[in-house]
Design a protein around this nucleic acid. Structure first.
Lengths: 345, 345
DNA sequence: ATGAAAGCGCTAACAC
DNA sequence: GTGTTAGCGCTTTCAT
């Protein structure tokens, strides 16, 4: 039991077939140098013996890893898990491996992960930064090392980097535009940090709509914070304690809306009867069951898919590379009031 | 722009410090061979020059990767994304890397991933199998190669493999026991495939409870299928078309319950007023907002954490290894009827 | 305490 | 078509 099993290597195959290991190596990779018959023989033997190439050796030797590093702030949130899954699927389709790391919203952890990924010599890096990332130095290093980099959703202002985002400002605008047209005056925004694009742009979209209709922005109804349930809870409590109860809340993310919902519940306020809520992103089962929130639909899958496409482009045609900024359309989906029997389990 | 940057290597440091690269290598890893002063000097220079060890070379040479492969059927479901996140956290804590792959419930893809992972020479494998996995051969190979293996949640009947699961049978029993005590007679089970443990054991728990109280099991109220929303939807529709409307549904997973909910909605049935529902697992925000389903709480985080612990144990003490079966307790949480105002957004 | 030699398993470049 | 020669960048003996 558990006897020290030595994996088969090229040499072993070479000896058995009485050819050189180069022949084996080429045959296994379908190199045109090798005759079809030899190739066939080699493959059969490899199969029979259960040969598995040592990827470490291969990558070391070829200076190519066929691997893309992926760095995200969270996994256990539907937006990210959907993006991640799409990245995996698209990469798999193209015979690329993904090495995923999670920063848990800690900039320092993010740094470490990127270092590891560079150490692994990944062929490229797809990153969505933490809500606290401010130091750009590690990314400048990535670029300096010539490692392709694509930011998704949460991006940093660095020249020459491709990005895949959604129309944050436009989405936000439409959510608030809708509210104003519906006649709401007391409109709140539970916002994200302004030092990061999604926080800033969604805030700007909110302001833009308010300005368009000359609705004064009540600072007591606007918060700036993180993107989690807790932030939503705290944000709404803060607003409530200032004595203002909004008629409408535009939340920067779905988790923030959830946190806000919990706070409202505690305060005896009903959603959507007392307060109508719209957020960026949505739950995972809106296909099945109507939501009590309106939401701005973010094409999470497409973000992942497009990011991989950009990455592969850049890896395969480094010469012609130029940074692209892909901005995907969002869509406002109204669900709340007309369907106020709607549960979501 | 993008000039071909050659990463610094041990030799470069060695030359600058006029010592051998062995000294550098040891110093960097804090090897006791090297004097504190030298170590300090080396580390400083490495820092200054932004040295990053080439992990591929290191792993190839040391035959150790400090990496654990993780294979799951899905990412974008709260149960798995929570488990995954916990695995990442625990591994990070112990300076291990995780390489995650997703089978998307396809046995063939699972096979390929495991091959890749073995090719990468991961130090161990944590796996939750697909709903269609039946062929054990790849796992037997893993074991034969002496690669530590831990199954989580969905396990295969292979001797000598550690597993981390929850008390599936007991959890199921409690859900049905509760229903019977409450007086329900028409009790349905939207079940999972019996060839996989969670499907089989949850079914058995259901049967056990029914038998205990001598309630006849109506085959028209029992289904066997997959674990997704779609399966829940189809399962309930099938039951309904047979003319039976249950008073109580015990669903094998949360996604199945969601699908069933959607079907009920279409059929004009109200949850929980018309049908009370209990499922294994839960949504991601039950901490914030009451659910319309009762649920059997699965400690998803603990599953991930315990799996990594088992894995590290096995990696670090291969001699004393013996397979352990960890079975975590579940807990029935009743939410439905007494709180029928409960939304979940 | 430090270093020289050997090699991890593979691929690239160039012969033949 | 096939093989030879050199590494890839690191870690391991094993000397010194």
């Amino acid at each position: 039991m558990n006897k020290k099993f030595r994996p088969i290597k090229l040499d072993d195959l070479a000896k058995q077939l009485k050819v050189s290991k180069v022949t084996i190596s080429k045959a296994l990779r379908g190199h045109p140098d090798i005759s079809p018959e030899t190739t066939e023989k080699v493959k059969q033997l490899a199969d029979k013996l259960g040969y598995m190439p040592n990827i470490l050796a291969r990558n070391l030797s070829s200076r190519k890893s066929n691997t893309i590093g992926l760095v995200v702030p969270k996994i256990a949130h539907i937006f990210f898990s959907t993006v991640i899954e799409a990245v995996y699927d698209k990469a798999f389709e193209n015979n690329y491996e993904i090495v995923l790391t999670v920063s848990q919203e800690h900039a320092e952890r993010e740094r470490k992960h990127i270092q590891s990924l560079l150490s692994m010599r990944v062929d490229g890096l797809i990153v969505s930064v933490t809500q606290e990332t401010k130091d750009l130095s590690i990314y400048e290093r990535v670029i300096q090392q010539g490692v392709p980099l694509v930011f998704i959703d949460r991006v940093l202002p660095i020249k020459g980097v491709s990005t895949v985002t959604v129309d944050d400002r436009g989405g936000a605008f439409s959510a608030v535009d809708y509210a104003i047209k519906k006649g709401y005056k007391k409109i709140a925004h539970l916002g994200g940090y302004h030092h990061i694009n999604i926080g800033r742009l969604r805030y700007e979209g909110f302001i833009e709509a308010m300005n368009k209709y000359r609705i004064p922005v009540n600072p007591n109804l606007v918060t700036e914070g993180g993107f989690s349930e807790e932030d939503g809870y705290n944000g709404f409590m803060k607003i409530f304690k200032k004595g203002s109860v909004p008629e409408y809340v535009f939340a920067v993310t779905y988790p923030v809306a959830l946190g806000m919902y919990a706070a409202a519940l505690e305060l005896g306020l009903k959603i959507p009867q007392d307060i109508e809520v719209t957020c960026f992103g949505k739950n995972s089962f809106d296909r099945y069951i109507p939501s009590v929130f309106n939401f701005i639909n973010q094409p999470a899958k497409d973000i992942g898919t497009e990011a991989v496409k950009l990455m592969l482009d850049q890896i395969n045609n480094p010469k012609e590379f130029e940074a692209k900024q892909i901005v995907l359309k969002t869509q406002l989906v109204i669900k709340g009031l007309e369907n106020n029997k709607s549960f979501i389990p």
